[in-house]
Structure formats: structure tokens, C-alpha cells
Amino acid sequence: MKPFDYQRADDADSAIATVSGDPEARYIGGGTNLVDHMKLGITEPGKLVDITRLPYDSVEALPGGGVRIGATVRNSDLAASHVIRQRYPVLAQALLAGASGQLRNLATTGGNLLQRTRCSYFQDTSTPCNKREPGTGCSALEGWNRYHAVLGASEHCVATNPSDMAVALAALDATVLVRGQEGQRRIPVTELHRLPGDEPERETVLEHGELITAVELPAPSESSRSTYRKVRDRASYAFALVSVAAVVEVSEGAISHARIALGGLAHKPWRATAAEEALRGAPATEETFRNAAEAELAEARALRDNAFKIPMTRNTLSAVLRELTRQEGA
């Protein structure tokens, strides 16, 4: 790790000005991902601007029934927040499925959204990686790719986004609030992350110096049910092989509305629009669930070690839909 300058930001404007004006400067929140990467030599900032004392540490109710989550709210506090537990259980469950208690106490909402892939080759500076060093090649493409993408990958990068929280936010139609030198902008969370294409080094649409200040959730429908299901190698404390966040409404035996996002499958939280389309208006039957899953996975492409993710996703998505559409008392 090369030496760096550390500053604690007292106000957002000066923090944004500092980072925007210095290509080597980075924001630091909880640090659970950035400190790790600095130790591994993946990133070498010359300056860190600590944003954890900025006034973005609360979860507030919005007029109209939604909530605004400050960017520095710790993952543990967000998962414990009553409004999240009661009205957005899929988000609380996703947060609680991620990392460990002692990491969730450090990790922030904004940092979680920006955490980078856990691809072993990306994390090892002794192996080629287009994301880390554009143009050097993707080691995972022909290497060990059990945890890698089956959807939306490119020949340049097959990495997956590791966040659980972001998968839930994608299913909740969340909006990310971002401030930069030009002012504030709102980005649907599904548009925050990019697919790798031929620029895998760019993971989000954020410009250097832009700061995530909050995430807003729209009001939940009172009749919807939601859940987060994570399949992983260890019973706890492991990244997803496959995960499903789903928000579903059933009306008279048919699915009136479904929002589904998948984790562990792509370079970004994967909003399963094809599955949603297949579900809309269809009867809540095993055949419907399977068809929806098959529709989403039609374009899936397996690598050497991850073909299992396709049937695992199909089965898991079906199981989640079965659970969410089960009639009470049935």
C-alpha cells in the first residue's frame, strides 16, 4: 500500500470538491471493501476522504409512504430499522444474509452499493484481469469460474456483483441519490451498475467525485409479499451462488404484480424482467413459476464451472414464488 493522505469530511460540498479535483482521491465509508482492496494492491488512492461523519446516517419516512436511507447508515442499523423490517422485509433479509455481524456494523449503504466483485482473479494482482488492468485479459473466462456470471457477461469480464442488498433494492425499484459538482441527480438502482461490455473497469455510471448520499424506496404496496432467498456454499458468511429477491402480489389466484431481481448471476443485480413479464396475470402455479424462470434464463450462458447456476436459479426462483404465492392457511 502506498502512503496516502487522510481527511475527515465535515461537509459534503468540500468533500465532493476535494475528490472531484484529484483523480487519486477516493471516498471512504466503512472501509470493509476499500481497505481490503488497498491491502491487496488492487487500488492505490493517494488521498482518502472519510465521509462517515457526514449527516447521511438516518432512515427517514418520505411523504407518500416511501423512505430515504442515508448513504452512511450502517448495514446493521438498516437491517434493524423497524420501518425496513416491517415494510421492506426483502431488504432486511438481504442485508442480514450478507457478510457477518461485525462487518455489517462497519459497512455503509453507499459502500455496499459500490462494493466490487469478489472474482479471485480480480483480487489477485499477479493474474491478468481486464477489470483491474484493462487489456490484460480475463483470467476467469477460461479459469475457475464457479462463482461467475451466466447472464449479461462479455468476453472481457465474467465477474458477478457480490452485493445482497443491491439485489433487494433492485426488486424494490429503489432510486439512488447522487451529488456531484454539477448538483444532484437521481439514478434508478437498476441503472446504477453496468454490464461489463468492453469496459469492465467501469462498474457503475457514477463519475469520479460523485457521491452517493441516499437511497430512496417507493412506498410498498400493502398487499405485496416479499422475500430474499440466498443459496450459498456455507450456511452463513459466504457470497451467493444464486440469490432471489422477489416482491409479489396475488389477486384471485393470479399474479397481479411481480418484481424480481437475481443475485450471483451477473455483473449487476439482475432485474428479471422476462420472468416478471411471464408472471404478470398468470395463475400462481408450478408451471407458471417454471416458465417464468425459463424465460429469464433463456439467454443464460454457462462457463466451465458454473452451469449449475442455471438449474439452481430455476429451482430457487420457483421455490420463492411458490412460497410467496402460497395462500395463508393453505
Binding site: 487522510y6 466503512g30 470493509t32 481497505v35 472519510d50 461485525q102
Partner: peptide, 14 residues
């Protein structure tokens, strides 16, 4: 609160 002390810089914990 419990926290992993290896993933936080000392300077950030003044």
C-alpha cells in the same frame, strides 16, 4: 459495537 479491526484504518477511528 463488534467490529473487525483489520478493515478499518486507525486514523479513521480518532
Amino acid at each position: 459495537r463488534r467490529a473487525t479491526s483489520c478493515l478499518t484504518f486507525a486514523v479513521a477511528n480518532d
